[in-house]
């Protein structure tokens, strides 16, 4: 069932939602999440598709908020879809004029009661998600720095505004890599001296992985630039030689250990919908992500100080 409301108010949208879900025989009663997607007209199709995909694993009410012309008269248009190609219900809000500064007043009345709220910014989100007027509503706040022109700078900004409950999809992209690395080091490798992460330039997942490895293992981790796609190689220099996990095609990885035959592991790059579904599986703060961000900042500070000292030495 689809309903379109033009030049409407939040309470009219809410009444329409309640009516629609009753006419559809209670499809919304199993909703476990409110997923708010902050998007724009250009990327809304892909974003809503990914959200709908994630909602198959976690039936949710998806509220898509599309910012339209910030200048011009204030207006709210809404599109409601109940029981169409996704469990739960989908509300698409188009926001015009100065209402863009008060989106929270529209979204708050639409939230399903007794159900957690997750906010996702598929594009360039706020630097401090927890301070965003909508971010304060959310138990989890999901950003995606990969959409930014300067992912590393963006990550450092997010780290400065980090609050438990924040997370980033570039972190979710490292999950299968991280579980493979953890499994590899499960068998004692002896002393590890250093590690290296190879990935294409401007890959935030690689930055996070470098920070995670450095923080966890307490060793220097180099960042190497390759042609991609994504993260292509992680290697450890150990007592027994070099352990290398390489993935050149973005699908299959090869694990090489000294004195052992190479092993092949499926390690495909996942779609946004899958990543989102993974993020929604746990709603408590992702502490490991917080630690990785902290390590990233500490390393950046250290590098900056080292650079400053070197500059000073040059001048002298």
């Amino acid at each position: 069932m689809r309903i379109e409301l033009s030049d409407t108010t939040a309470s009219a949208v809410r009444s329409a939602l309640i009516r629609a879900s009753q006419q559809m025989g209670g499809l919304t009663t199993g909703v476990v999440l409110n997923l708010i997607v902050m998007t724009d007209e250009g990327e809304q199709y892909d974003a809503m598709k990914s959200a709908a995909q994630a909602s198959r694993e976690h039936p949710c009410q998806i509220i898509g908020v599309i910012a339209r012309k910030p200048r011009g008269p204030r207006r709210l248009d809404a599109e409601i879809a109940v029981g169409e190609n996704a469990p739960g219900q989908i509300v698409l809000l188009r926001i015009y004029g100065e209402l863009n500064d008060h989106v929270d007043s529209v979204v708050t009345p639409l939230l399903v009661a007794d159900t957690p709220v997750v906010i996702w910014w598929p594009g360039e989100g706020p630097e401090a998600p927890a301070d965003d007027p909508l971010g304060v509503l959310g138990q989890r706040r999901i950003t995606d720095v990969a959409a930014s022109d300067d992912p590393r700078g963006r990550l450092l900004a997010l780290a400065a505004g980090y609050r438990p409950g924040d997370t980033d999809l570039s972190w979710a992209r490292t999950t299968s890599w991280r579980s493979l690395l953890a499994a590899t080091l499960d068998r004692p490798p002896g002393q590890i001296y250093e590690a290296a992460v190879g990935a294409e330039r401007d890959n935030p997942s690689a930055e996070l992985m470098v920070a995670w490895l450095a923080g966890r293992l307490g060793i220097p981790v180099r960042r190497e630039v390759s042609d991609g796609p994504g993260v292509t190689e992680v290697s450890f220099l150990t007592d027994g030689g070099k352990i290398v996990i390489s993935r050149a095609d973005g699908r299959n990885a090869t694990l090489s250990r000294p004195g052992e035959p190479d092993r092949h592991v499926a390690l495909h790059r996942r779609e946004t919908g899958e990543l989102l579904a993974e993020e929604l599986r746990r709603l408590d703060p992702d502490e490991v992500y917080g630690e990785a961000l902290a390590t990233l900042v500490a390393a950046a500070d250290y590098a900056a100080k080292a650079q400053a000292t070197a500059d000073l030495a040059d001048e002298e």
């Binding site: 108010t9 939040a10 309470s11 204030r74 926001i95 209402l99 008060h102 007043s105 529209v106 009345p109």
Partner: peptide
């Protein structure tokens, strides 16, 4: 004064 349901 404020915004209620998208209306000032």
């Amino acid at each position: 004064a404020g915004w209620q349901g998208g209306v000032p």
